[in-house]
Nucleic acid binder design. Structure first.
Length: 278
DNA sequence: ATGGTAGAAGGTCTA
């Protein structure tokens, strides 16, 4: 018998990192398991779990080969990180630093390790929607974006590859909406929102999907209402931001749009990047 | 002028 040319648990090909706002994990666990099987992502960042940690369908996802870390909340918000064995994670951080009073479950982060692969720090982010604007919800959104920028700056200092993935609730440019005029008064597209997103990018991040695909019509969210999906009235609000060390390893970025066409879909679809092993 | 839909909750609120 010949010795295998690679170690039995070596990663085959690039590391895949997916972000997906599932809009209730309990409603979407079937779709998630199907996606894990078909796409075999190495790390998955989930948002809008809409349940507490005890109610998270942990067993099914662990049975699919993933370690599960959650920051849940009753009814609203909730984020998780799934890490496929034999990858492991350390330095888990639940909650975005910078406001001890903030009780909303919108941020979880960990350092992901694997044999023969450079570590990657990954965050799953559910940035506030912020509507109606102006108002307290919009102020919270802008404050959250500032906290994220300051935390990102601190993380940059480590020089680990860093991937900030999630539902940003930000339409970065007019090309990222099928009908940008419909969004001019919306917290997802107000000038101050877009400016705060640019300020985050200016810390040194590459927005992976746009870097890989400059074409228009690239959306990640279609509202359930008013036939937005059949009319393709989408927006692009789910993003993966890569630090320079992660961007150096960027192989591809893509949207798994077909999942919006399933029965009982989330209103968001997954976005996936592939990073070389370093 | 407003609704249209979905989810958690079983109070309407959030999106």
């Amino acid at each position: 018998m010949t010795k295998p040319s690679v170690a039995p648990f070596a990663l085959w090909g690039p590391m895949r990192i997916t972000t997906w706002n599932v809009n209730s994990i309990k409603q979407r666990v079937g779709h998630l398991l199907g996606f894990l099987e078909e796409a075999r992502p190495d790390v998955v960042c989930l948002q809008e779990l809409k349940c507490q940690d005890a109610a998270f369908p942990r067993a099914e996802i662990e049975a699919a080969g993933y370690a599960v870390e959650t920051l849940g909340q009753k009814a609203y918000n909730g984020v998780a990180l799934l890490v496929r064995a034999p990858l492991t994670s350390t330095q888990l951080l639940r909650g975005l630093p910078g406001d001890a009073e903030d009780e909303q479950a919108r941020y979880i982060e960990a350092l992901v390790h694997g044999e023969g692969i450079a570590p990657v720090r990954v965050a799953s982010i559910y940035l506030p929607n912020g509507n109606p604007a102006p108002g307290p919800k919009y102020a919270y959104k802008l404050a959250f974006m500032k906290r994220l920028r300051l935390h990102a700056r601190a993380m940059m200092a480590s020089e680990d590859a860093l991937v900030l993935a999630g539902d940003y609730n930000v339409i970065p440019e007019p090309v990222d909406a099928a009908d940008p005029d419909a969004w001019t008064q919306d917290a997802l597209f107000l000038p101050e929102t877009r400016q705060a997103f640019r300020a985050l990018l200016a810390e040194g991040f590459t927005e992976a999907l746009r870097a890989c695909d400059p074409s228009p019509g690239l959306y990640t969210f279609w509202d359930y209402q008013a036939g937005c999906w059949p009319r393709n009235q989408g927006i692009r609000i789910d993003h993966l931001l890569l630090s320079p060390q992660a961007a150096d390893r960027l192989v591809s970025a893509s949207v798994q749009r077909h999942l919006r066409g399933l029965e009982k879909p989330s209103d968001h679809v997954p976005v996936t990047v592939e990073l070389s092993d370093g």
